[in-house]
Every structure is written in structure tokens, then in C-alpha cells.
Design a protein around this nucleic acid. Structure first.
Lengths: 334, 334
DNA sequence: CTGTTAGCGCATTCAG
DNA sequence: CTGAATGCGCTAACAG
């Protein structure tokens, strides 16, 4: 039986209001303050946040839904998000969506039931229709990294189209013409990156062989299997653009297994720089997102929404990505 | 303003008790059931778990404290834990301890304040004294992966000493004598693994040069920097045992950078098999933990504790690790 | 600055 | 099977 505010009333003789005020940082006579602190210490009293939440109608918890908690990218993002949220005095209720849209929808219901004050989503679903329920429950939502195509929600991420465009252009500038892509055509940001690739190719007047477009869901396996098939092609591409982190890793594995190496046999540009990329030599050219800035901004947005629940229109914030130099591109110039 | 149980009373004319009973799966007349369901649908009613928790005195949330959410190993564990907990109808409140003991202690306070029904800890601290407050708050705790040295708590993990012992023995059987170790001497399981290394070396009567013992905190950097120094030694070891996942990765990077390769220049055995290990060729011998089994068992234990809050003694469950074959060990036999 | 009084939304007695 | 009443632990008025 944990101690309650009443136990400390009985012990100090003060009223509930005084104690409550102390607990919430109000002014209390020094001697009463001492009394209360003493009682708290002896009784091991801890505020019952549940009860507090019931009356203040806020839980000081924000829910975070992540498409896959095993994803390295997601792990890093969660780190930044949690850190920022804690600074703001909020706890983090994390839900793993297992890359499954049904689970994702259930997760949202779950979080709403838990009366979180706001929700941060790294979505699996392309469609945000299920998020409607958050809106009708008046719980603010901020999307991170991947937007949804059919709903207006606050969003923070990068300009994926532009990032991919620049990355592919880099290859083109190095006189590559047979450029393949392994990317996601399932998630929003994957689709944008794919569009960036297409845009760059078209702008340069380059032909895209159908077999150079390798699409599927963001995953290690995708990169691995598709790269394997690319390498087996009779007309092998001279360069490959890898559309995300897990895919980059999988592709690296396939190249290694084939006994090939970059940039000699193949030029590559990867996406998202996490610590593991550094294991690989030669260094790979990388599209790098400002992950910490994204998370900080997303939390900031959410905090604003929580505090001023106005009907201000949704805002999309896209940072620019950095393309970091490596040694994985061979120039085909004569 | 979300709808409450009262709104649905006003709409159906039924009493709170009836509605409450329906919500909790009790028997209600079919026609009333219909009425209620209709009202729920129209009002978008959702149970307020906060209010429910206040009276039932349980939140259906378990807290999970993890030493570092960016750790790949931890990410996988969280995946399994979350999955299992969800199956049991529990939500997961994840706290990242940033490898910082003070944060860890604050996290515990935070979780206790949130009145979680139980707590799973992947600890950063070697000492469990701060966990005492969970005990006095009567909130069950189960430790995962790393135990603490000064308190009796339920624990689920592997027999680290044995696993390391067997791994090092493998090296010895391949006639290595100059065997180095890079491991943690800060976390409980790291210390056990180190002991396993020492045990194997002593049992074989092998000398351990002080400069072959490379210790620090479980991290990518540790593996990287220490391996670099090992490689720079005039009397370089012929084999290295890597005490955990992040360290293994860091070490791999250092070897690559040095332009060396295994098993020719160096034999290695790593720890913990996550997807990234597969990127690396030749395949590395790996000590593999049954991660899913560990998580499932830990949740099972916690559920039992939550349901029967008896004073049964703490139990430690140690699974055996598997040593998975690779091509990273060269036999030194003539 | 302190005390009194009402609820927050729900589950749970106990009658009927 | 249903309804009325009570309280979970706390905060928010208001009055003193």
C-alpha cells in the first residue's frame, strides 16, 4: 500500500490543499515545508500520477509509434526523441508497429486509451486515415520521417526527393549512365526518394531499364536480395543508389558475398549514416539526415500543439540532407 | 472533450453500472448491449484508462528501462519484450538510461510515479541498491541480460561465464596462445564474460599479457580503439575474443581500417548475432544468445509476480548460449 | 498562506 | 440483470 497524500496529512496535521500546493511547487511556510518533506521521506510517499492525471486531464506522457523498433534508424531517432521529451518533463510510451498497418492502428487506439498528451509517429502506413481518431479525440499528432499522403498532419523530416535527386546527380556527374536503384516504394519517404532518382535520370536524359528499379519494403532483406539480382544481370549497372539505411546494409552484404568491391566493380551511394556504416571500407558516399534536429523540432512542434490547442493549420518542415563524401564512386570519365 | 461513460448513460438511459459491466465483459441484456454499442460508436467513446487505473489500482503498463536504446542489442530485445507484453495485454513504457546511472535512478522514480504494474530492467548499473524503492513500492522487477551484484532480483539471461569460457576454449583448441580480450568490466555480464575468458586461459595454463586485456564500457568505441591498439602491439595477439555486440562491430572496423583480415592475420570470436553481423565476410564465429526466449521468459516471470504478489524468493534463469560456426578462426596447428 | 469542498471517470459494493 | 451510492488519490476553486 503506497502512502497517499492523506497519510501525510494525518502525519503533519496540515490540509490536503497545502500538501498539494507544496507538491506542485507553490509557496508554503518553511516550517510546514519541513514537516511535509519529513513525512514524505518517512512514508516513502510518491505522487500518484494516475490520480493527478485524472484531474488535470493530462498524463505528461507522449506516445511514440515507430514502424519497427529493431530498425537502427528508428533506434537512433527514439534516442533523440526520448531525450528531448524528458527535457520537457514528458515520459515516452513507445509502441512498436512491426511494420504492420493493423498493429499500427491498434497502437493508436491503445495510446488514446492511455490518454497520452500527444503522439509522435514514425508511420508504417502510407495512408493516415486511421489517424483521424486522434484528431477527433483532440490529441495532437506529429509525423516524423515519413508523411502520409491523404491527410494534413504536422510533419518533420527531410526533403527526400531533393536528397535523392542530388545523390543520383552525383553519380551522373561522374559519368555513370547505367544507374540502378534499390528503394522502398511502400513508405512515403521511400516513394519520394524514388521520385528523386527518376527525376535526376530523366533530367539527364538517361534511360532507366526496368530491371534497374528494385523496389519493395524498407528492409535489410530488400537490399540484400535485390543487389544480388542486380549483380547477376548480364548488363550489370555501374552504379547503384541505395534508398535507406537497412537497404544499404543488405546491399553491402550482397556485394561482399559476390566477392566484388566498390568503387572498382560498382559505385554506390547509401542513405542514412549510423555508426555501422563506419565499419565498412572503403567509405561509402552517404546521404545524411540531421536526425537530432528533426527530433528536436518534432518535439517542439508537439509541445506547441499540446499547449495551444488551436486550429492552426498543419505545417510540414523539411530539412536539407547532407551528402557526405566517401570513396565509393568511381569516375567513368576518360 | 472525449465522451465519458456518463454521456453514454444519458444517451441510452441505462445506469453507469450496466455500462461498466458491459465494458468489462459482463453479462448484459442483448437489447441493452445493442444500445450501448450504438452509443459508443456514435459518441466515439473510449474507455479512460486513467480513471480505470485509479480504481483498479493497475495501469496495465509495464515499464522497461534500457541502458541504451541506441544499442542494437537493446533494440532487438525491446522488440521481443514489447511483442510479448502486448500479447499479455500490457503496454510498454520505455525509458532510455543513456548508460547513465543517475538517469537510471530517475527513470525508476518516474516509472513508479506512473504506477506501472511491473518493471523490466536492462540495467546500466552494477549496483541494484536504487531498485530498493521499487521493492518498497511493491512493484515487481525482473532484470534482463545483466544482473546486479548486491541485490536479489529475478533475472533472466545467459550463463555469460560459461559462454565466454567456451568461446575462448575454441580459440585454445585451435592452438592459439596469444589470445586477447576486448570486453566490458563495467557491466555485470561483461564482468562475467571476462571471468570466463580468464578461467579458460588459466585452465589451459596460458599466460595473459596485461596489454591483452582491453577493458571499458560496452560500446562501439571501445571495440574500435582497443582493437587498434592491439594491432599496433609489437607482439600482436593471434586471436581476440570480443565481449559484446557493439564491441565486436568496433573491432571489425579497426581491423578493416588496418587493412588486415581474418582469419589470416587474426582470429576472432564475436558476441551476439544481430543482422549486421551478416554483412561481414568471412563469417565471424559468434556467441549467440537466445534473445527471444530470454524476453519471453522475463515477461512470463514478471506476469507471475504481478498476479501473485507473494514473497517467493528471487529466481535467476540462465540459458546456455550457442556458439555459431564461422570462418574467422585459423588453426595454428602444424 | 491555509483549509474546505467538489469533483475528474470509472469500478464496485449492495439492494432491488 | 440492473440501479444508486461510494470512493480511488489528487487538484482546483473558493473562502478564511
Amino acid at each position: 500500500m503506497p502512502a497517499t497524500i492523506r497519510d501525510i496529512r494525518n502525519r503533519t496535521g496540515l490540509s490536503l490543499a497545502t500538501i498539494s500546493k507544496y507538491l506542485n511547487g507553490g509557496n508554503v511556510l518553511p516550517k510546514n515545508k519541513e514537516l511535509i518533506e519529513e513525512a514524505i521521506a518517512e512514508l516513502h510517499y510518491e505522487v500518484n500520477e494516475i490520480a493527478r492525471g485524472l484531474v488535470t486531464n493530462q498524463t505528461k506522457i507522449v506516445g511514440v509509434m515507430v514502424y519497427d523498433i529493431e530498425s537502427f534508424f528508428a533506434g537512433s531517432m527514439l534516442h533523440y526523441i526520448g531525450h528531448e521529451l524528458r527535457k520537457q518533463g514528458y515520459g515516452t510510451l513507445i509502441c512498436d508497429s512491426y511494420n504492420n498497418e493493423e498493429v499500427e492502428e491498434q497502437n493508436l487506439k491503445f495510446l488514446l486509451g492511455k490518454k497520452v498528451d500527444g503522439i509522435l509517429i514514425l508511420p508504417v502506413s502510407l495512408s493516415g486515415s486511421f489517424m483521424e481518431q486522434a484528431r477527433s479525440a483532440d490529441v495532437p499528432v506529429v509525423l516524423i520521417d515519413r508523411a502520409v499522403k491523404d491527410m494534413e498532419f504536422d510533419f518533420v523530416g527531410i526533403d527526400n526527393h531533393m536528397a535523392a535527386f542530388r545523390a543520383v546527380n552525383l553519380l551522373i556527374e561522374n559519368h555513370h549512365r547505367r544507374i540502378a536503384v534499390i528503394a522502398s516504394d511502400v513508405e512515403y519517404s521511400g516513394i519520394e526518394r524514388l521520385a528523386g532518382y527518376l527525376h535526376a535520370m530523366e533530367a539527364a536524359g538517361l534511360e532507366i531499364l526496368p530491371c534497374y528499379k528494385r523496389l519493395g519494403r524498407h528492409s535489410f532483406e530488400l537490399g540484400y536480395e535485390q543487389m544480388k539480382e542486380l549483380l547477376a544481370l548480364s548488363e550489370r549497372p555501374t552504379a547503384v543508389f541505395l534508398g535507406n539505411y537497412e537497404t544499404t546494409l543488405g546491399a553491402i552484404m550482397a556485394v561482399n558475398e559476390a566477392g566484388l568491391s566498390w568503387p572498382e566493380d560498382l559505385s554506390i551511394v547509401g542513405f542514412d549514416d549510423l555508426i555501422v556504416s563506419r565499419v565498412v571500407r572503403p567509405k561509402i558516399w552517404m546521404v545524411v539526415q540531421p536526425m537530432e534536429a528533426i527530433c528536436t523540432k518534432a518535439v517542439e512542434l508537439l509541445m506547441n500543439r499540446i499547449r495551444h490547442k488551436g486550429e492552426e493549420p498543419a505545417v510540414k518542415i523539411n530539412y536539407g540532407a547532407i551528402i557526405r563524401e566517401g570513396d565509393s564512386i568511381r569516375s567513368l570519365a576518360e
